[in-house]
Design a protein around this nucleic acid. Structure first.
Length: 428
DNA sequence: TCTGGGGTCCTAGGACCC
DNA sequence: TCTGGGGTCCTAGGACCC
């Protein structure tokens, strides 16, 4: 059942402060304390507990800028622990899928539930049930917003999260409070309205979601395109974005990292790029794709514009492929073309584009490789790494030095509580 | 000293063809 | 002086999301 049009009902379930909440589940001493989680290389704040938000710590702020605050207010700081968050996300989603067969996992911490046709039940009760079950089974607090469209469900969810008296659940389906809810929603908090459009709309006195809902169609169409028109419909309760079932195959795959320390030598850059390629190639194979185009880029520190250097090289691959050594070969050739001696590189990455289905394998007329053999080899390597850990088999080109200057560090990472036998929490 | 990473969709404009 | 029209495909860049 794909819900489009009128009388649809969507619930948006969103985990509160997801990464910070995950850390708390296994370390109850963190309850009530400000907690933040950092990006790669412990660079920026990417998640905050309510207590951390109350201290004025902003999303995305570089951690060195709040060093004093962290120290004086006893903020608990964690590196990102993707193994933990990924596994906790899976548990939450599994729990949610007991409440409807129609679920769309929208991001690591959000899911849309299609509740169209759930007429006979009290949706607020149902939402409260979802919330308490998720909390009890996974330890993660969630908020639930229910409405006629995804955009309105987002708005309901936001209010549910912020306003204590909702108890974390708000149903705006045919609600007399709908207009009021739209009125108290700042235009910049509407799903799909970013900083640029928010500024533009405010200049035209469209300061909240209610004003946008009642805005002139032609004006919005002209200034915000077809996408703006869809947004108007969604705010008016006409669903334009149906529930998406399976995740669509990616149209491109990117792997890029900032380096812990600046890199000057080509050989270090080569190791980094070879590593990124092997990560990306594994993603390609996982979704059974092959790439027609490979791009490789490197850049210096973007915060030092005086000696900034960025360059990108594009390779049209002779045959679509997901073969790691072949991709490494082309990536390194591209890298050597853009490398300029004397720069302090701070970031590099690779992109795979023009993704096509891996099978049937397209044979090149003068293709020197034995595709069938290389495919079996890749399968074997992937299987071993899935079983024994991601770095069990790697390529020599990716380097062997664990402390190479380009490598990402996570100095304050919590244990992999749920995905490593040796890290299971003990109950005493 | 220290500043994340990976996506999507839409549109405008250029290249090219008939 | 004067300089077709329309279609397709591709790409770069803008805007947004988590």
């Amino acid at each position: 059942m794909k819900s489009l049009g009128k009388n649809t009902v969507f619930a948006l379930v969103d985990c509160n402060n997801f990464y910070a909440s995950c850390e708390r589940v296994f370390d109850p001493r963190l309850e009530g304390k400000p907690v933040v989680v950092l990006s790669n290389n412990d660079g920026c704040v990417v998640a905050r507990s309510n207590e951390a938000k109350a201290l004025g710590i902003k999303m995305g702020v570089p951690v060195f800028q709040i060093a004093r605050l962290i120290h004086t207010r006893g903020v608990q700081v964690f590196s990102s622990n993707y193994a933990l968050y990924g596994d906790m996300s899976r548990r939450v989603m599994q729990t949610l899928s007991r409440f409807t067969p129609e679920i769309e996992i929208y991001s690591i911490d959000e899911a849309f539930l299609d509740l169209t046709g759930f007429h006979r039940i009290d949706l607020n009760d149902y939402g409260r049930n979802i919330r308490s079950t998720a909390r009890q089974w996974t330890g993660i607090p969630v908020s639930v917003g229910i409405a006629r469209t995804k955009t309105l469900a987002k708005i309901a969810n936001r209010i549910a999260k912020k306003s204590l008296k909702t108890g974390g659940v708000l149903d705006l389906t045919d609600s007399p409070h709908l207009s009021r809810a739209l009125e108290i929603t700042d235009i910049s908090d509407v799903w799909g309205v970013g900083s640029r459009y928010a500024k533009f709309l405010k200049q035209h006195r469209i300061v909240n979601a209610l004003r946008l809902r009642d805005a002139d169609d032609a004006f919005i169409r002209k200034r915000m395109g077809v996408w703006g028109t869809r947004l108007l419909h969604e705010l008016r309760g006409i669903s334009c974005y149906p529930l998406e079932s399976g995740p669509p195959a990616r149209k491109g795959i990117t792997v890029s990292r900032s380096f812990r320390h600046p890199v000057q030598d080509l050989s270090d850059l080569e190791e980094a790029v070879a590593t990124f390629v092997s990560t990306g190639a594994k993603k390609l194979r996982k979704q059974r794709s092959a790439a027609e185009v490979l791009m490789v880029f490197a850049s210096t520190n973007r915060f030092e514009p005086d000696h900034f250097y960025f360059n990108l090289h594009t390779v049209a691959l002779p045959v679509p492929t997901s073969d790691t050594p072949e991709l490494i070969h082309h990536a390194l050739e591209g890298l050597r073309r853009i490398y300029r001696k004397g720069y302090r590189y701070k970031k590099a990455g690779i992109l795979f584009k023009g993704l096509v289905s891996a099978r049937p394998i397209q044979m090149g007329l003068f293709d020197p490789r034995n595709r069938r053999r290389s495919e079996r080899l890749m399968q074997t390597i992937d299987r071993i790494n899935d079983r024994m850990g991601p770095k069990t088999l790697t390529y020599a080109a990716a380097g062997l030095h664990p402390s190479a200057p380009w490598k990402t560090v996570f100095k304050r990472r919590s244990p992999a509580y749920t995905t490593d036998w040796n890290r299971l929490p003990r109950v005493s």
